[in-house]
Design a binder for these strands. Sequence first.
DNA 1: TGCTGGTTGTTGACGCGTCAGTCAAGGAGG
DNA 2: CCTCCTTGACTGACGCGTCAACAACCAGCA
Lengths: 149, 149
Amino acid sequence: MRTLPTRDDLRTWREFIETTEALRSALTTRLQHDTGLSPGDYAVLLALSEAPDHRMRSSDLAARIGWERSRLSHHLARMERRELIRREECATDSRGAEVVLAPPGADAFGAATVPHLRAVRELFVDALTPEQLAAAGEIAAALKAHLVR
Amino acid sequence: MRTLPTRDDLRTWREFIETTEALRSALTTRLQHDTGLSPGDYAVLLALSEAPDHRMRSSDLAARIGWERSRLSHHLARMERRELIRREECATDSRGAEVVLAPPGADAFGAATVPHLRAVRELFVDALTPEQLAAAGEIAAALKAHLVR
DNA sequence: TGCTGGTTGTTGACGCGTCAGTCAAGGAGG
DNA sequence: CCTCCTTGACTGACGCGTCAACAACCAGCA
C-alpha cells in the first residue's frame, strides 16, 4: 500500500498539468486566429490531404486520427456546413460514406500548415533547451507506457 | 528568420501533446468513475471547502480557480441542479451572489480527494523516475515562462 | 434462401467552454 | 439628483465531446 503524493509532487503535478493545458490552449488560439481552423479541423484536413485522391472512408479517417466515429460524424457535419469537406456515398459498401476534401478545405489547410508549425516551434521547441526537449520526449514516452499498462 | 521545427522536433511535440492529453483524459475518467465529479466540479468544491464558512463570492471563486465568470456561472447552474452547491444573494452588494457549499457537495468532495490524489500518484508520479519528475517540473516552468513572454 | 451477428455511420441528449451581449446595481463627478 | 462608466452575474447561441441507441447493411452459415 503506497502513500499519497507529497506536497512537492503535487506542486510539480499542478505546474505540469496546468502548463500543458495552457500550451494546448495557446496553440489552439493561435491556429484559430491565423487560419480559422480548430485543431480538429486541422487533423481532418491533414489526413485528407495525405490520402490518395483526397478522399477517405469515414471509419478509416476516424481510425487514422484516433477519434470515435460519432465524434467524427458530428465534426464532419460542421465542416460540411462550412464547405471544407463533402460527404459522398461509397460505391462498394452502401453503408459507407466517403469524405472528400473540398477546395476551400484544401486552401485553408494549405494556408494553415506553415503558421501552425511556426507556432509549435515558437511555443514549444524554442521554449526548451535541447536537453529539455529530449527529456520532454522521454517523459512523454514514460507516461504513455505507464498509461497503457 | 528562424526555420520550422525538424521532423524530430515534431515527433517529440506530437508525443508530448498527445500524451499529456491522454493523461488528462485518464485522470478525468478516473475522477468521474470514482466520485461522479468532473475536474471542474472538483476545483469548485476544493475552493469552497477551503473558504471561510464554505461560502464565496462568485467573482472571487472565479478568480481563485482561474475561470471566466461566465464559465463559472454556467457550471454553477449545473452544480446547483445537482444540489452540490447553492447560490444566495449577497447581503453587502446586491449585485453579488454567494456560492455556498451544500452538504451533498461537501460529502462528494470528501469522498473524492483521496482517490483523486491516489490517481495522480499512480498515473503521474509513479510513471516517472525522481529525475524525470524534477525535469518535468523544470520543463513546465520553462514552457510557462515562455508563454507569458 | 433466410437468420444472425457484427459493421458503418448517424442521431439525440447532455455536459462543458467561449463569446458576445444584457441588465441591474454601484460609484464618481457635475 | 442625474449622467456616465464600471462591475457582478446571467443568458443564448454555438462549437465541441461522449454516450447510448439506431437503421441500414454486409457476411457467414444453416
